[in-house]
Design a binder for these strands. Sequence first.
RNA 1: GGAGAGUUGGCAGAGUGGUAAUGCAGCAGAUUGCUAAUCUGUCAUCGGGAAUCCGAUGCAUAGGUUCGAGUCCUAUACUCUCCGCCA
Length: 426
Amino acid sequence: MLDIKFIVENQELVEKGLAKKGFKGISVAELIALHLEINKLKTSSQAVAEEKNRLSNTIKTASAEERPSIIEKSRELGEELKKEQESLVVLQEKFDNIMMRMPNLPSDDAPVGKDDSENVVRRKVGTPRTFDFKPLDHIELMELNNWSEMERIAKVSGSRTYAIKNELSRLELAIHMFVLDKLRENGFNVITVPSISKEKPLFGMGYLPFAKDEIYYLPADELYLSGTAELVLNSLHADEILTENDLPVLYAGFSPCFRREAGAAGKDTRGLVRVHQFMKTEQFVICKNDIEESEKWHQKLLSLSEEVLKDLELPYQVLEVCTGDMGAPKYRQYDLEAWVPSQGVYRETHSCSNITDWQARRTNLRYRENADGKVKFAHTLNNTGIATPRALVPFIENHQQADGSVKIPEKLRPYMMGVASIGGKK
RNA sequence: GGAGAGUUGGCAGAGUGGUAAUGCAGCAGAUUGCUAAUCUGUCAUCGGGAAUCCGAUGCAUAGGUUCGAGUCCUAUACUCUCCGCCA
């Protein structure tokens, strides 16, 4: 959510930002007009309320003769007030409806573009490996090593689900432990959070109303299945006023995540790349309302993810996401993509975003500044720590050996009982 | 699933129908001085105004009763305690 005062004072700038993000059909002029109308009505209804309060307070001390006429007058004012407030509610609803659909404005430094074809590669790290044997794709590797039950699980749970087993399931959990440990060493509070959520946090994060079709809904309990721990972490401190000394708040959140993948029909239907349920370790930061400070954290989160991919010895590229491909909440966004040999392309493993105060306004998350005691909306940022099973795809494909075994990088071995490789034909 | 208790500012905590006490913390100022203390103001949101300021709203949420609701009524949510069930 944006500050309405900012919108009023910077209409042109806001309209430009919306255009960059490809948001059409939102009238900034209408929003401003509604705001001004609401203010006008508020002012007039407040004058009525003031008069009514004044009258009411005289009743207690009024004489018996005066009292009935005062009560009558006060009642009339009450009815007038009620009418004004009813029209105020209608206007406010219209206003909120537009306001909730207003995206965050993108950074001036973000590349301008209409869709993912205009994202910009900032750098490539590591070199895609050349194989001296014919490499297998991740599905073949899993079949060879008895690491999955992909066909059977589809009978039970439908398409886009997965069951992995034996050494590969250990690897999945080991990678999470490895990343959680890394984040903990960097000052993050490790927290495992629910995957179920009420409706309100979905608005707070910006899932609603923007990505309605992506979300599983449980009508019997009016609850939703969360697509990311970010959803929960973003609302964990909703409606609170923290002190500046509490900041930054750093969370490494772990949770099962659920996505309907409604818009991805036909894409990545086989294997582990795009599934309805997965596990994600998420980085989440609440920091001061200071763009330099949050941009610093944005870079820090990015570097932590890069470190994860480096430690896992995966070639990757850093993509800066253009304005048209960013989600509504985002000010600036980097994606990390790891090399997938079987597809000959880089595939997304991490998404790192600075949200500035857009989410905090929606969740009413504030803090009190030390310097002057003023209350401000915090900045929030999020980034993937690691998401599995997707990350297993580049992992096992890049580290496969001629015999079908998969090498375990040095840094991960402590989490794999010290073994140097898993699987392979004996 | 059953029974009971509760929800008031950043925190603690009073308030049984007539302007939301007080303490602590934070912030600003003043003062005395020595590792701090004292005093005053401020300390949730919004509106009008250049500003001092004035006003409206705010006691979990939504309704209702009333000239007037933190207080009375109804519904809901959440928290805690006990019982039951349970990984």
